[in-house]
């Protein structure tokens, strides 16, 4: 009888240690997955910030970026005009293309509406889509009230080749500065950028330009 009790105890200990090790393994794999997820997030944030840094470096080394005043833009009705006809004063531009993810566009436009709706600084969206129908479709989808123009050509700005939408300011001489990519992982950065620009209401000296 005593022997039987020992055997039962032995099985119970074995069983509980097996269950415990299973739980431990599950927790460890969960922790590994979390670390991997954070690593990926960090890499994405680093990439986004690095894109802005690279853009600034190139901007500093060159004479700055400038858009061509003759650049062709098309409004949602399909009317074609030159860029110089639509820019008359310093304007905050949000650049998005067909390559950008829907959630980035949604988030970017929401921030733009929240932060820049009551500012005196004009806001404009310059997008690059295959057709005006697509531009109208995204206008409907995201309820865009800002002036929006389609530019079939890419800009001569390094950020235009990146996978994230971005903001910048264009002045009367079509010089572009104050670049900021939309960082989905840390929207606070974009939010603060827009807050800073819009609260200054056209006094753009605060960003040192």
């Amino acid at each position: 009888m005593k022997r039987l009790v020992w055997y039962i105890l032995f099985v119970l200990v074995l069983l509980s240690s097996a269950i415990y090790s299973f739980h431990l393994r599950k927790q460890l794999s969960g922790a590994d997955a979390c670390i991997l997820m954070y690593d990926k997030k960090l890499a994405l944030m680093h990439n986004s910030v690095q894109n802005v840094i690279n853009c600034m470096k190139l901007e500093a080394r060159s004479e700055g970026f400038r858009l061509s005043p003759d650049l062709v833009v098309e409004d949602v009705s399909g009317n074609i005009s030159a860029l110089m006809d639509v820019f008359t004063e310093p304007t905050l531009v949000y650049r998005l293309t067909e390559m950008h993810c829907n959630s980035c566009i949604e988030h970017g436009i929401r921030l733009l509406k929240e932060e820049c709706n009551n500012t005196k600084l004009p806001v404009m969206i310059l997008c690059r889509y295959e057709s005006v129908r697509k531009v109208r479709a995204i206008c409907n989808s995201y309820s865009i009230d800002f002036p929006i123009f389609n530019t079939p050509e890419r800009f001569n700005i390094p950020l235009d080749d990146m996978s994230t939408s971005y903001f910048f300011i264009v002045d009367e001489s079509f010089k572009c500065y104050g670049f900021q990519t939309f960082i989905k992982e840390i929207p606070l950065i974009t939010e603060n950028y827009l807050k800073g620009i819009c609260s200054s209401s056209m006094n753009l000296n605060f960003i040192g330009y």
Partner: peptide, 8 residues
């Protein structure tokens, strides 16, 4: 129509 615009 304006509310039936297919993007892709």
């Amino acid at each position: 129509s304006e509310d039936f615009l297919i993007g892709e």
